[in-house]
Design a protein around this nucleic acid. Sequence first.
DNA 1: GTTATTGCAAACAATTTGCACCCAC
DNA 2: GTGGGTGCAAATTGTTTGCAATAAC
Lengths: 129, 129
Amino acid sequence: MKDQRTRSQERILDLLKTLNQAVSAQEIYIELRNRSQNLGLATVYRSLEALKLAGAVQVRTLNGESLYSSLKQDRHHLTCLQCGESQPIEQCPVRDLETQLQTSHQFKIFYHTLEFFGLCDRCGSEVHP
Amino acid sequence: MKDQRTRSQERILDLLKTLNQAVSAQEIYIELRNRSQNLGLATVYRSLEALKLAGAVQVRTLNGESLYSSLKQDRHHLTCLQCGESQPIEQCPVRDLETQLQTSHQFKIFYHTLEFFGLCDRCGSEVHP
DNA sequence: GTTATTGCAAACAATTTGCACCCAC
DNA sequence: GTGGGTGCAAATTGTTTGCAATAAC
């Protein structure tokens, strides 16, 4: 068994817990560096991968990059396809379904992502994009 | 106004409508080529971008690549973080919320993605990953 | 004819991988 | 000492962009 977390994983997880927003691997790399807990970028990626498989972090993809956050509450978003801005929403109507799927599909669900896409007020009203 | 679709966009949209699964840009490129409707890869990406902003296609991200599908019914998935396999599910409990958000956040919502992540039966039971 | 669209190749950016080194046990 | 964990740099991959050729109207 290799259930124990490596030191890098601990550092990253600690960092994620102090933040209350999802961040990219590169941001984690920089932020750890700021805190003099330097890690190689490859290590950051490898650790995140491990944490992900362990069900310790959740991932969503925004504009081509993965954003990681600790596995606390659901956090969903409204993202503008044009300007790429992303605003959080509070609601989450999927809890029940999640429980149900877990048994009906024999699948150990760690987390889910729920994201809405469209045009924000500003971009939607622009005549020439 | 540039509401009209370009020929490339039409081809891609037609293709997507005949498929009932989401496909990557590269797969679209290859499939069009098979049908002797050759398009440059850049054109495929550009067209998809336009279709996306027009609300004509929806996009989900799987294992680092964008998968496109025509905007028909919701199609959500259960994805294994380990083997990467992705199986569709039928349910969708978000319709109401979507309508509600549209007004409360002044946001024109085109579509949403709802994806569950965890470990499938097979991967979950493996002792040594 | 003027303008938007396309293809190609080069550029980019996020992520992954090979390999040598190192640290913990 | 041995084996996993790490850093660095190179490689890979999906996607974007510059620009000249082309098609649309």
